[in-house]
Nucleic acid binder design. Structure first.
Lengths: 341, 341
DNA sequence: AAAAATCTGATTTACGTACATCAGAAATGG
DNA sequence: CCATTTCTGATGTACGTAAATCAGATTTTT
């Protein structure tokens, strides 16, 4: 049987009340007594029964999810996953609230974070826009003792407790190798479509992509990045323009969202050229395009996993528990026609 | 606040004891009363607090993991993950025991399963050898009301509650497409190394591989399958033999374990030919080979995820709860040089 | 209609922890 | 050395559910 608080009390030769004071760092215990209890805890290997503790506390974790108000499939999917978590929340003793802020707007995000300080939620998850003011706002929350995790896109140099998202440099590198190898030894231009260089995930993907391209596929040259702000219409216009102006494009890497527009542009041009295309994020649109051959591979991060991981980590931090690192590593999914879920 | 048993009692106009009888399907409740209570439960949306219930029951789930005694890195890794779960088990109210049985031996596996019937564990997880006697033994356990999940390799036509492993047909298809595209339009032979056609996962990978090869890469022809029984030495001998005898081999697909031997054979031949190689299972050996260029891509299933998923599912089944399907889907990882964890 | 069987209600204890209260002990101050 | 402060023990209640007991109410059987 697992040891309980009673066992600690017996082992340390003190009363239950004293054990409780030590365990919950309440005042009123002499230093020597405290040490005696702590030794006993270590020796018999006591681990607090979190379920019983939460039951006794009547605790519910109140978490806040901050998501960007972006009109693309990926963010809709992320929102849906957060909502699914909200639906499950009563069972899991959590009370999750979402907060929408304008996309790519550091000031609005920082303001939202500061508002939360007074609320003192049990944890905050956010899709970060990588800017100093956001970082500072996050650090203030952390200073207040509120667990913070970033989701999808990380925050440079901040004190956030955890990042629930993929390694975007690796994602960019992987995209480059796939594109390079799929193209065999062909020479030509590669177009890159991004959302915005303001978010760290897009910057990192480009960085990784460019590195491998330069190292290993010197026959391919990257054209200046197209920033479509994750907006389908904007992406469509810019990509169509690039394709008609530059005849040497043989490959496309779409590292952000707004792929609906990209796909439309590709289909319009498909009569006159064959392109190898790697895109990010599996949505209804990209899935169809993968199946019909418009896209050759999709790199994906599972938003559901990210949301659930973020919640697990927030819970663990709120309880002062450790997390299983391997379990919380968000993996980069590579989808070809054949292994779609 | 979440409704409790007291709320049901009040809503249905019965006593707590009656609610308890209904909830835990104990006898002693008239049909009409039972329905009244069930209606109340539905109407106020009561969900049993599993944590409190387990606390009250003092329940610990005793699970058994049956793993094959195979001397290859993948099975060692699987074993290590099970051991890690065992180490965590007291915290999670589980009591996990492992049972080793000879690999590829349906009779031994069936016998082990039958032994468990008398023990009545709260759940059983096994790496299945796909044979009728194993299926029947599993079905007997299921008939006894014991939750059973297969891990890594599934069991055809059985009543097992869940399969915690990848879609192996999709894995084979993915391997074929990667190999075909990496080879550009080249023509030649492809060698396939398997463990044994007795396990369903290997059969399915081959099936998927062959299908895509035939459909999409007619220039590549598959040589007769080499069965290395997941044994490094045997694999080394057979592959070395094939490479020296057949001069037309330009690609290799290793769909089982025992890659240590494969890699050795490949390195011995690497002076005279360039091969494109796709292998399964990320281990120290395959990782090194991927990084040094001996292997071009690794398809992997995360043994840790499979073990944790199996435990979550067993727990849920034991509690009569539903599982989050998307969370329990085991994904096929594709690793290139650039996205190794 | 009486006896037996079946159902239902009321009440209590337990699980492991949190938290509060109150009394008594030990340490510290003057 | 007494008064005060600080520590410690004993005890009880609560969280939501499980499970047991016993008494009383219905229904069914004879």
């Amino acid at each position: 049987m697992r040891p309980t608080v009673h066992d600690i009390a017996a082992a340390a030769g003190v009363s239950l009340a004293t054990v409780d004071r030590v365990l919950n760092q309440r005042p009123g215990v002499r230093h020597v007594t405290r040490e005696k209890v702590e030794t006993a805890i270590r020796e018999i290997g006591y681990v607090r029964d979190v379920a019983a503790a939460n039951l006794a506390k009547g605790r519910t974790y109140s978490f806040v999810f901050i998501v960007p108000a972006s009109d693309n499939s990926f963010m809709h999917g992320l929102n849906a996953e957060v909502m699914a978590a909200v639906a499950r929340s009563p069972v899991e003793r959590t009370d999750i609230r979402t907060l929408e802020v304008p996309a790519f707007d550091p000031t609005a995000l920082a303001a939202a974070l500061d508002t939360l300080r007074s609320e003192r939620p049990a944890g905050v998850a956010l899709v970060a826009t990588d800017a100093p003011e956001v970082r500072d706002a996050v650090d203030r929350l952390v200073q207040d003792g509120i667990p913070v995790v970033t989701v999808v896109s990380d925050l440079t140099g901040s004190q956030r407790h955890h990042y629930a998202g993929v390694d975007n440099i690796a994602a960019g590198r992987t995209a480059a190798r796939l594109l390079g190898r799929f193209l065999g030894g062909a020479k030509g231009d590669v177009a890159v479509l991004a959302g915005s260089m303001l978010v760290r995930d897009h910057r990192e993907r480009l960085e990784g992509f460019a590195a491998v391209m330069a190292e290993e596929f010197p026959g391919l040259s990257i054209l200046p990045v197209i920033e479509g702000r994750d907006d389908p219409d904007m992406a469509h216009m810019l990509v169509a323009d690039a394709l008609s102006k530059r005849g040497g494009i043989i490959g496309v890497y779409s590292l952000g969202a707004g792929n609906r527009g990209l796909i439309r542009a590709l289909k319009e041009k498909s009569v006159d050229r064959a392109l190898t295309v790697i895109a990010h994020e599996l949505t209804d649109h990209t899935r169809t395009a993968l199946l019909d051959g418009t896209i050759d591979a999709i790199l994906n991060q599972d938003a559901g996993h990210e949301v659930r991981s973020a919640i697990r980590v927030l819970k663990a931090k709120a309880d002062g528990l450790s997390v299983i690192d391997a379990q919380e590593r968000i993996r980069l999914d590579i989808f070809l026609k054949d292994n779609l879920p």
